[in-house]
Design a protein around this nucleic acid. Structure first.
Lengths: 216, 216
DNA sequence: GTCTATAGTTAGATAGAC
DNA sequence: GTCTATCTAACTATAGAC
């Protein structure tokens, strides 16, 4: 199967099945996050939500599909903003970082999966390659307005600024997983944005809105 | 075994044994990097360097110890600078990033292992937690001079600047693994440093040297 | 080479929800 | 009555360790 396709119409047509499918996804998230794709076992995931191993396989025929389903559901929040007019606002990344702090398992999953999936054999490789491309493209589109107006610090382009901000988010979340009390992800993310973009974000937001309106 | 201890006196006392140990370490690096600790198998590593499975286990009694040996050898370059007088210069991080581009397997190993090891059960957890602490401490010591002289951009402390630079390095290396042609790790790292530290690095280096000399 | 444990996956039969 | 959900059982491969 291509990693970019939606899964084939799964079981879960009965009320009970829908709930169980949900429970499996919730249970799989922290396991994949903790030990990664290769380290996770379907039997362990099944056990952790009180479902039989075979029942799990009824809903997710292969381990690959289970992982993809978990990832897709968790990246949903970010993906919603990929097609925002004028590109994805940096504030969305900050807001996500702020939200994620309350859901350590999600951060763990994201960091572990994106690192594992750099290998081209990994079931989520194509998914993540595409995911990163889209984040960069969307954020670059947003920052293009800043670049055009000379609001980026010397040397930065819209794309390099986008890559840096995304890198800081990922890197800080990694550090946060080691020292949760000492790393303020969202706060540092804001500081970096302030160091790269030379005007307040409100001003940039306004300029982007203006640009979008003018383009109609 | 504590992850921070040196391994107990290993085999490899004979000339042939030394070479074989070396070959195993070289072979294990890309495998751990590609599929992670859990995904890697000792048999595969042994096969990839023409050594029998049993022979491998003679040199590295457990999988944990093999991983630790690989990590320790590869982080050596960075660890050398932890105790630099005046703290580790940011230029060392940039130089390392520049060097690593020629050794993708090392980047892959580092990213994958540091992500996997966020789990407290992971054999390299304590090692990496300590490793990050030291990098931050050492780089913060270096940047303390900049902070004292008002050479950091508003809002940054020595530690937050250190965390940001390290985060950018990790995050960009992750992006680089997905798009090797499009991400210039060292170049972007320099840009970020330029955005956070308001004076040229030569000036900061000189100030740090001066500080060290004065402290004697 | 062997041992024991566990992995992902498959098949088939039964019981339950619609 | 039909489709879904669940369970029992087994298979094949491979893991780390001795």
């Amino acid at each position: 199967m291509s990693a970019l396709d939606e899964p084939a119409a799964p079981p879960g047509r009965y009320r009970k099945g829908v709930a169980k499918r949900e429970a499996i996804l919730e249970a799989a998230l922290p396991v994949f996050g903790k030990v990664g794709f290769h380290g996770a076992s379907l039997r362990e995931i099944a056990r952790s939500c009180g479902v039989s191993h075979q029942s799990l396989m009824h809903y997710f025929p292969t381990k690959d599909e289970l992982l993809m389903a978990v990832l897709r559901r968790r990246d949903e929040r970010l993906r919603q903003h990929f097609d925002d007019e004028g590109g994805m606002r940096l504030a969305e990344l900050v807001a996500l970082a702020e939200y994620n702090v309350d859901v350590p398992a999600v951060i763990s999953l994201f960091i572990t999966a994106s690192a594992e999936a750099t290998s081209s054999d990994h079931p989520a490789h194509d998914y993540y390659a595409d995911h990163y491309d889209r984040i960069i493209a969307s954020t670059s589109a947003y920052l293009a307005v800043a670049e055009a107006r000379g609001w980026l610090r010397d040397g930065f382009t819209a794309e390099s600024a986008a890559r840096v901000v995304l890198a800081v988010q990922d890197g800080l979340q990694l550090q946060w997983l080691y020292r949760r009390d000492e790393v303020q992800v969202a706060e540092l993310l804001r500081l970096v944005i302030g160091a790269v973009v030379t005007v307040p974000t409100e001003q940039l937001d306004a300029a982007v809105r203006e640009q979008v309106a003018a383009a109609r």
